[in-house]
Nucleic acid binder design. Sequence first.
DNA 1: CAAATAGTGTCTCTAAGACAATATCAC
DNA 2: GTGATATTGTCTTAGAGACACTATTTG
Lengths: 274, 274
Amino acid sequence: MDTEKEFLSEYRIEDYDRPSVTTDVAAFTIRTEDRTSYRKNPENKLLLLLIRRGRHPFKDMWALPGGFLQRGETVEECALREIQEETNIRPASIMPVGIFSQPGRDPRGWIISNAYASIISGESVRQKANDDAADAQWFTVSFTCGADGRHHLTLTCNDIRLEAVLAAEATRFSRTSFRILENSGLAFDHAAIIAAALSALRAEAGRFAAIFDFLPETFTLTALQKVQETIMNVTVLPANFRRMISRYVEETDEFVRGEGHRPARLYRRKRTPE
Amino acid sequence: MDTEKEFLSEYRIEDYDRPSVTTDVAAFTIRTEDRTSYRKNPENKLLLLLIRRGRHPFKDMWALPGGFLQRGETVEECALREIQEETNIRPASIMPVGIFSQPGRDPRGWIISNAYASIISGESVRQKANDDAADAQWFTVSFTCGADGRHHLTLTCNDIRLEAVLAAEATRFSRTSFRILENSGLAFDHAAIIAAALSALRAEAGRFAAIFDFLPETFTLTALQKVQETIMNVTVLPANFRRMISRYVEETDEFVRGEGHRPARLYRRKRTPE
DNA sequence: CAAATAGTGTCTCTAAGACAATATCAC
DNA sequence: GTGATATTGTCTTAGAGACACTATTTG
């Protein structure tokens, strides 16, 4: 067995023990609530896509869309494919969140999951018909940190309410991981994946990185600000937001008219900041 | 097949096509060069551990330590185990860098790799005997970005010199990924993994997160500053570094004496910043 | 004392936060 | 005009960068 060619011809990958590999995707979007007055700007809500499991294990519980990695595709392509199969929309972007490989996390056996967060523009979601009978639903996200350091994740959709309590694990690096303390209604370790995805999403939004993908190509600065505020769960003064975002956006000549107040200029993302 | 128990008893995980899963670990340490004068402080070098492959594929080329995920361990444990097998040292910390799953990346077949960066305290490396005949060697790292945006990675160890040129891929998020343009001497896609690991390491060092793990429990502020400067490839004024690091460290009562100049106070990392 | 590093004080400048003021539309 | 948002200007303050200066040790 001298040459690489000879080695490879005798190599039997099946001889080795190996796990199944899945991707799970936390797909986020922002829904613009109906305006309460003709001239008032609408409110935003952060939404997460969940699937009601029709099969064992965790039958009838809610889970992140995901599936097994197929031969010939990368893990990113697998994540994109899963979202597209579920929503018929191709996400604007996809971001790795972590690898979940704790033995016993899946009762079917040795299965590790590559978790991703993805962002779907609110425009796209609005365009597709959203039949309520389907097993896929968009849940409103609430994710807060209590005084005791315990994080509370609440997902609501009409009458359905899923709750989980998590502890942030001490990591020596900037990414945070979470341990599930309480969990109701979410399958597998998906509560921990969702918490990690939200944490990563907030970190990105803080650097003005992920927020553009929630909006169409052109947008008003107020809309962009609302996106960031919705994700980060904070409020900023418009004057300061405009100053901070200015290096990431560029003007267009378009304006939004007919809103009952001064028309807002449309901006687009600048290709090269600075 | 009504209950979950029944479902699981009939589930055959072997029926499904699945990849082999490996971890590859970029293990970094910092070596303190011998001082040129009795009173001058020593210089630092960033080192990366590479293994000369004794077997196909990529026989005789240099590669990151790594290996196949074993049943019953998490991916993190696998990465820690691989480093420990190779160096006999358990890293202070380990950080996910990315998943490399491009079809064809491994000629043996469908093999995906979870890449990690890990930091090994320079103290530990110094303590262990480093037999030069071994297949594992610490390479000096140089990673710079040219004016054309092409990144140059150079790894040197005595007479061995490995070089690669990479392009930073446009990601919509803060983590950067790299595409290999030229490569000499590095196995698989490890040049891209190393570049991604260095990029992640620099991002962490910029937030004062990863630098402590290169040093022993207590350290001088100058040593800490040199670590950061070595990783980030920049220099800062001592006064400013001290101000910025002050919230992350706390004083001890110990001093380093006998250095031919004013003794330096030893500090330790503060558990809770702020 | 000379050489070298350890450590402090402070000036400047930039950027973030707060807030006031003006602009512009639909009704 | 009224109510709402859009947009700009500026005062204040916190923090980063630059630099001067003092402190302390060994040979």
